[in-house]
Design a protein around this nucleic acid. Structure first.
Lengths: 336, 336
DNA sequence: CTGAAAGCGCTTACAG
DNA sequence: CTGAAAGCGCTTACAG
């Protein structure tokens, strides 16, 4: 099938070397030669064989992305952003799904490290605590960017949603509408994102002189079922809560459904705010207030940051890039 | 970084040829040799360079997937299924997102055809009517499987949800609960999936001796906003509908929200059934009845079918493989 | 059962 | 400005 450099060279009476240079815009090449080569290449529908050029140049023209789950609103949007940037750099994207398994994460990383990509983007599995495999990427001089589910252990670029401030705003808002006892359904604490949301929650309470009650902070591990359970316990127990800030919208939505199933009015008795601004916020009744981050942009900027490293062959600096978030107030926290 | 065949060969005092054969389980190789080679390879963490072996064998160890949109419940689940199969075949997956643009579709296909993959899975963009680029894949002898958004123009394997029967069951169910005037919010008619759902709708009416009223069939182009609009027109107009079957759940959910906004009781005045059984069905109130298909399995079987072609180097036969669907009845169509 | 040799298609230092 | 040559790491027909 394939048209090769040799074919073009033969047709034009040139050497493959010259054709290669012409196509790669090498400065030495005669303008006329370059033109005719490019013209013929186009006419013959020549496409460079990436395996061959990759073998020669030690470039793979591919990046790897490690995500916990493809089939989620957040990560599939992030992936869109990554695709966009990769496409315009003429790179392919290998998507690896860990299903929240550290074992899978390790496996994928060692496979990617075996020379199949030029750089790696990682969003950690929620259970990943021993992070030797991440260190391995850094030690192997492979460009790396962490996004969303990051870890402070590593001095590499991290792209995150504005988790702390977003959570802070959400909780401040709950306080402003009159909530005095606000529970937080928290995510896994080893992940940057959920940790920072928890810190934002606490800070908002502190700044408003509301005492922090550890019994109101319930780890839900991103599991909606645990969210329902937490609500049942919170309500049946002795504590009289009047507001809930949930680490994400999936849990937030379940919270609303669970409260309603118990005959509790949202937002009058308990107001609810989630995080993510997923489409489901506008489907549940009452609509769920939420912190809007921008997954597409998180992916976009993470990829740009990775390509900066790949193209400059400079190590990624240790910085944290925060994508702004914004509180979207809906009926679940609007009191008349 | 990389350990090569040569390194192993040198250490063991063998030739690279022998090492290669040992690792690839060539029958000629001495059992003892094979063992020691494999052992050392493991110890040295040898990973075959896919570019080099691909260049030699003309295999890419990659497949391409063309989807309209990654960030959707349906397609991201399909992709999970594809990933699973690809992974166990030790293949990479190149995901290409067309954003429903035929132009993008053409671009991606010509790029994939340039030798970067061993096979292609396609779900058509909704606007794609001129399908020369698909013909190009077939003419180029590239293994191909169409899934979900298929076209009957081509004699290739097609993996589809049970669209016709699913729709038939959904509409029959609406009739059974007493609906007499059932509208259908339809998808793009050039796509196999939406076309078959329309046919199922019609057949159910015919079999129940309900006349088909073309005014009750409203094309919504998979656009929830058009779904809302259709509902407004249907209700404000002279027609008195009492049931709606929508081509997918995203529109079905909007239908419920729109009906409620107009003060219409669901399901008592108008019952609603969607298609897809997305998680949002259990978030909207009342919960949306829907036809459950199995996107993960669609992806899984489409990929298996593609690997059958790749591994046997036989052309894909012209068949249609239907993944069973099942009606899930919820409050939106449960009348007391 | 093992090895030397050729070659996949490309890029690039070296020479002119 | 252009070409001949070497080599990236692998596989495999050919020879022994």
């Amino acid at each position: 099938m394939g048209v090769t450099l040799k074919d073009i060279a033969f047709t034009l009476g040139l050497s493959p070397s010259t054709v290669s240079r012409a196509l790669n815009d090498h400065p030495d090449i005669n303008e006329q030669t370059r033109k005719s080569v490019k013209q013929l290449a186009k006419k013959m529908n020549y496409q460079v064989n990436k395996m061959a050029s990759g073998l020669r140049t030690r470039k793979t023209y591919a990046i790897g992305v490690i995500v916990p789950k493809i089939a989620s609103h957040f990560f599939s949007s992030v992936l869109s952003g990554i695709q966009k940037v990769a496409g315009s750099n003429d790179y392919q994207v290998y998507i690896c799904q860990t299903n929240e398994s550290t074992k899978q994460e390790i496996k994928y990383i060692s496979s990617l490290m075996a020379g199949s990509v030029d750089g790696i983007l990682v969003s950690l599995a929620k259970g990943s605590k021993n992070l030797k495999h991440i260190k391995q990427i850094i030690d192997g001089d492979m460009p790396l960017v962490l996004f969303d589910r990051t870890s402070d252990q590593f001095k590499v670029p991290k792209i995150e949603a504005e988790d702390f401030k977003g959570a802070y705003r959400a909780v401040t808002h709950l306080i402003e509408i009159g909530c005095k006892k606000i529970a937080h359904l928290a995510g896994p604490d080893n992940l940057g994102a959920s940790h920072n949301r928890l810190l934002g929650y606490k800070q908002a309470l502190i700044d408003n002189k509301i005492p922090i009650d550890e019994k109101l902070i319930i780890p839900c591990d991103f599991d909606p079922e645990k969210g329902r359970e937490a609500v049942r316990n919170l309500i049946s127990g002795p504590i009289d809560i009047d507001g809930i800030f949930s680490v994400n919208d999936e849990i937030g939505v379940e919270v609303i459904l669970a409260l309603q199933a118990m005959g509790i009015n949202v937002p009058q008795q308990v107001a609810v705010v989630g995080f993510g601004d997923f489409p489901i916020c506008e489907i549940v009744m009452p609509h769920l207030s939420s912190v809007m981050h921008n997954p597409y942009r998180i992916g976009y900027e993470a990829a740009e940051c990775l390509f900066d490293q790949i193209n400059s062959s400079q190590k990624g600096k240790n910085f944290r890039h925060i994508i702004p978030s914004q509180l979207v107030i809906r009926e679940s926290s609007r009191r008349s």
